[in-house]
Write a protein that binds this DNA or RNA. Structure first.
Lengths: 360, 360
DNA sequence: ATCTTAGCTGAATCGTGCA
DNA sequence: TTGCACGATTCAGCTAAGA
């Protein structure tokens, strides 16, 4: 129950102006669900405030696309400014707008990491039978630049998917039933996103305590899931009516207990153990023979933690690579010791070292 | 240059120049598989040490995003000119290029009708564990303009999908095995598309006798399927080696009787539900204790869908097996939640997930 | 002949930390 | 900034060889 009210902020206002007031490099993750209906002339204002004015069809369409692009570039510019260098940006859209958004964020220097398909299990049919049932929406996940580092909880995603790598297509139902926010019995927001979708995004690309921003808050799904997962949150929304819904909803959301927020981390997060530490603690002794699983090569442990194979000596990794004539090798899993005729990877010894010497 | 029947033509040359020589409004359907501009780095190694056979061909290299955009605008301009007013344009791509292509074709006046996701049933994994498995490609289907009429064989698509409307996500395997064109035992083209994909496109958006154009012919999949379905065809390809493959392939393709259409793939088996989906939907919450029927073991659910038993964490199946010291375990029936003193297998929650979220 | 298993491969923007 | 050592990391389907 760590999340204090101060960690969950909703700001009423225009998303571009509001983001302009936030400090640079202060946000870990941005999830954006921008408007995509290009025909809503009233929704699309030129930066100087004038309304898009239709002249004839062709001109109007060009002008609408251009105005939408300008709007997209403007909010992406602010998003980029307030995003930390290792932060992530997610945008969701449909074929009406996602190609323009994707091109604009590439132009702005963002580096696409994946496009994700939200495959709706229960989409609305195409009633007229004139096209394919539009059964998905597209999300783009990107880092701040080509070389930028970014957060990705690979093992948590794998755990969430029954120990198979999480794919770029996600089958998730539409937000319906009890989860759908209602006002006077009618849906409170036309495009409320399912919490399952945001749960996956936030679990994949942020950690507890991170600052998450949603510049197009709407009914507040991102805020509700951020609170549930112990993330800090800022939501920006222009419409007072939506803010009322989101505030009520986020207030009702409950953070899960902190120790349940633990996720699978994988070996990269574990303390590094030099092979030599096994010798220093007597878990392995100089002179011990090492061999690969098929006993094709046989090396010998030396007192300084190097191993010798024929005339060559070096680290468990280097000699493993040399033996196979491979560019690299994980010596921990390649080399084995033999006990009573059974082979055991030296990684088991590293495991023992960690529990016996590093646990406390 | 031309292959057997007069209406199957392959032209060697640059696609823009060649299209410029074709008459205006002469083509019913264009299927384009342009270079993706992948921008790959160095070699990529699989975990076991082998190297991924990457697309490193010169034809996929562009100096900049701007150069790629210019190329895209140029071929789209010619495509637009030679397309009949009620013709259709399909383009396939990945996140590397598809957003630029989509924006460019909207700018050129094309009207997007659907974006289609080719969901690969057997994609290459992400070997380094750095991103989501890139498991799909995207196709854009558009008409010549907003008001243009276009061809769509709605009932053929519905029949192909067990009398359900064809959706915008198509599950189709990669082109492998006997279908994959080989030269000297090696793949003839790095990006050969599966015939199932083109079959669906051509069946949906053209009729027998229509003129189909593929400006980036490659190994000739579009031509082979066009012939099979009794469509006329023009393919354009720059590389002589690919033309040789495509000519041989198209020559071997046989037109089918139109009533002998390939049977549609049945609906997939009952959807697999990852344990993590229960968390995403709130059917179970992080921190919930799980126990076996005899309450001998007690584990705790974590936010990523793994469960923790003592110091160990992993999938419901793995931890169930570990607890009993068994080689395997069905976690769905082994683990239970407790409500008012009564134990209930988590399989009941999976059942609820299926009825509440996957039924429609 | 039939079953099992090892091996290979597919449009891929595929690492981190310290000296 | 660059260089180098450490050592993390894979799914489905087909094919050919072995049992």
């Amino acid at each position: 129950m760590a999340s204090a009210p101060m960690d969950m902020t909703i700001i009423q206002g225009d998303c571009i102006e509001t983001m302009a007031g936030l400090p640079a490099k202060s946000v870990d993750l941005i999830f954006a669900d921008p408007p995509y209906n290009l025909q809503l002339g009233g929704d699309l204002l030129r930066p100087e405030g004038s309304t898009v004015d239709a002249v004839d069809d062709a001109w109007d369409k060009f002008d609408s696309l251009g105005a939408y692009d300008q709007f997209t570039r403007a909010w992406l510019t602010e998003a980029r400014r307030i995003l930390k260098d290792d932060g992530g940006l997610w945008v969701i859209g449909s074929y009406h707008n996602i190609f323009r958004v994707g091109a604009a964020l590439q132009d702005a220097g963002f580096w696409i990491l994946n496009d994700i398909v939200w495959r709706k299990t229960n989409p609305m049919p195409n009633f007229k039978g004139t096209r394919f049932t539009n059964a998905h929406e597209t999300l783009i996940w990107c880092a701040k630049s080509e070389k930028a580092r970014y957060k990705f909880n690979y093992h948590a995603m794998k755990a969430l998917n029954d120990d198979l790598q999480m794919r770029s297509d996600w089958s998730i139902p539409l937000c319906t039933g009890a989860e759908r926010e209602k006002v006077n019995g009618r849906k409170a927001h036309p495009t409320q996103k399912p919490e399952e979708l945001l749960y996956r995004v936030l679990l994949a690309c942020s950690e507890p305590g991170d600052m998450v921003l949603d510049p197009f808050l709407g009914s507040g799904t991102t805020g509700a899931v951020a609170k549930r997962l112990g993330r800090r949150f800022i939501g920006i929304e222009r419409e007072e009516a939506y803010i009322a819904v989101a505030e009520r909803r986020i207030a009702a959301s409950r953070q899960v207990e902190m120790d349940a927020l633990e996720i699978s981390r994988g070996r990269r997060a574990e303390a590094r153990v030099p092979f030599g530490a096994l010798l220093e603690t007597g878990l392995i002794t100089p002179g011990t023979p090492l061999m690969d699983l098929k006993r094709r090569w046989r090396a010998q442990v030396r007192a300084d933690g190097s191993i010798a194979l024929g005339k060559e000596a070096g680290s468990i990794h280097k000699i493993g690579a040399r033996a196979q004539n491979a560019p690299s090798c994980n010596g921990w899993t390649f080399w084995h010791t033999e006990t009573a005729g059974k082979l055991q990877p030296i990684d088991m010894l590293r495991e023992r070292y960690r529990t016996e010497h590093l646990s406390a």
